[in-house]
Amino acid sequence: MRTVSRSGAALTVVIVTALAAFPFVFKANWVVNIAVFTMMYAGLATAWNLLGGYSGYISLCNAAFFGIGAYTIANLFPTSGGPPGSTPFLILPLVGLGAAILSIPIGWVAFRTRGVTFAIVTISLLFVAQTLAFLMRSFTRGSQGMGIGVPRFSVATYERPFYLALLAIFVFAVSVCWYVRRAKLGLTLFAIRDDEDRARGLGVDTEIAKLVTFATSLGITAMIGGVWAYYITYIYPQFAVDPLITIGMVLMVFLGGKGTLWGPLLGALLLVPAQRLLAQNATTARWYLILYSGVFLFVILLLPRGIIPSVQDLVARLRSKSDRDTSSPAATVPTVPTEVVP
């Protein structure tokens, strides 16, 4: 088992400190508002990467669990209950746990399929969840939407608690990823990605590994949905269970680098601020879908492995080149896809 590298630990401390300090340095509400959404997607993308990046199973139903988290918070803290303060944040771990347990039977059925069929089954689940969000009026009040008690946070720093809660979930998600990559579970996931049949043939229990990862990833997603609902304070089915949220997290993982620890954060940092600014401007909002699809196509066709792996390849190639210039003609450094990289 690999010990913590010093540079990796230093990088982690720098990133987390910078993220934690951000709302105290840049205080304008609109800036922190963008930061809230960036941190939200960073957490969602990291959670998606846990299954999608490490095991290669493309799950497209994550936005459904985002909605489940959102509606759970909305039901627990309705507008009529008065301002809930910080209680919703404290109850989130339970929401996440509940969603994770709910996801297990769903995962059990979905994992009867593999590869592209798994993606299709989960995408169907997403559409079903959206339909259910409209139909289950006792839980969601359908298309009339649902209000959540508005907190009495100070106006000047209104966004800060939401940002910090999302940061905490993000740090939790990254810690889970970091741990999984070093634990037997990570090796199992990598084995599934590389050759599931061979892994099973060698006696690896792939079913449990897939289910545990699926449930963890969706539990984290539901917690983030809960914070989102509390921040927005009024939710509608079409935004709580939105295919664009699923697309967003997948896109950010692909942009930053599938299967890397910090790739999802990088993807979110690059895309979300641009996305928020575009969506807020009336003219560009009409072009929003077209621009979104353009960026998506660009990333998948021209940068299919994402920024972090591409940069690492480049560095490795430059290094091996300089090695060769000075010493023996060493073989070019191969890029091992399962290599654990920061």
């Binding site: 590869g115 998506f296 196509l297 066709l301 299919p304």
Partner: peptide, 29 residues
């Protein structure tokens, strides 16, 4: 066509989803 054969199944799903969003956007305009 540019997608590599080994990743085509999964990536085609995402690429055609992006195409769908683009066409939806154009139709909306």
């Amino acid at each position: 066509r540019p997608l590599r054969a080994s990743e085509r199944e999964e990536l085609s799903l995402l690429v055609t989803w992006a195409v769908a969003l683009g066409i939806e956007g154009v139709l909306g305009l």
